[in-house]
């Protein structure tokens, strides 16, 4: 099923562990069609024939024009969207492999708590909780104390350049860029093994965007696998180890080609 060429782009530490199985996620020929039953059962293509894989400590960037299905692919991996056909194989640290396209709901919930994180494009939190609580809550949910979680949350918010005076206000009152940074902090506070990022730097200025990219580079060093969507090539070149260009099935160019670029 491996249609892509694999080349090791890294020198240094990652080479040493080359012999181990470094695979984190293996997406095999997935497709998604939306059937809108209440609109004459019209069929909308989300994406089709998508295959790629991501190793631990590696960032894959999804590229392609608007509407080609980039966000939908991330949602399919997270199981917000159901896929058919294809399989989405998640390799766990213990060596077992789970097909995210077909495993049980409870298993997905467990993976979301501890192994798979999603930084969505827009912040979705209850209107009555503060920024600090919003960021801390994934840790609290894992059983960490309120105090430790808040400290870690404050550290991340500060790292991403959110002023302390905003910590105790609902993030829904924040500017778009501030909300986005809260969302990122929330997405990375609990340790995960695979992180999905939908345009994490879209509404950020240069400086905030730099901070986010640096944070992502740190996460890669911690061996976290990532799949991200970025809206500009410069950012992709800075953080991504490889790219996957999503294409429409009807387009003349064959799908499932991977262009690799040095990070």
């Amino acid at each position: 099923m491996k249609k892509m060429k694999k080349r090791n782009m890294h020198a240094g530490p990652s080479l040493i562990r080359q012999s181990e199985n470094r695979m984190k996620l293996d997406v095999q020929n997935i497709g998604k069609t939306f059937t809108l039953h209440n609109r004459n059962s019209v069929q909308v293509c989300g994406f089709s024939n998508v295959s790629f894989s991501v190793n631990r400590g590696e960032m894959l960037a999804l590229t392609g024009p608007s509407g080609v299905g980039k966000s939908s692919i991330l949602k399919a991996i997270y199981r917000t969207y159901l896929t058919n056909p294809g399989s989405i194989l998640f390799h766990r640290t213990d060596g077992s492999v789970i097909n995210l396209a077909s495993c049980g709901e409870s298993q997905v919930l467990n993976l979301r708590r501890r192994e798979i994180g999603f930084v969505t494009q827009f912040l979705k939190v209850l209107p009555r909780i503060t920024a600090l609580q919003a960021v801390a809550s994934p840790l609290v949910e894992l059983g960490e104390t309120e105090q430790t979680s808040s400290l870690q949350a404050a550290y991340l918010l500060d790292l991403l350049g959110i002023r302390e005076e905003l910590f105790h206000i609902s993030p829904l009152t924040f500017s778009g860029g501030e909300q986005q940074r809260v969302n990122i902090a929330r997405g990375v506070i609990a340790p995960k093994e695979l992180l999905l990022l939908d345009e994490p730097t879209a509404s950020l200025d240069e400086k905030s965007s730099d901070r986010v990219l640096e944070l992502l580079m740190e996460l890669k060093k911690k061996d976290i696998a990532m799949i991200g969507i970025f809206h500009d090539k410069g950012k992709i070149e800075r953080v991504a180890d490889k790219t996957y260009n999503v294409q429409r099935e009807d387009s003349p160019v064959m799908t499932s080609s991977i262009q690799q670029e040095a990070a």
């Binding site: 917000t80 969207y81 709901e105």
Partner: peptide
């Protein structure tokens, strides 16, 4: 029957 976000965003 499904994950809540799936039911809301990709109802079948």
């Amino acid at each position: 029957y499904g994950l809540t976000d799936q039911i809301l965003e990709d109802p079948q």
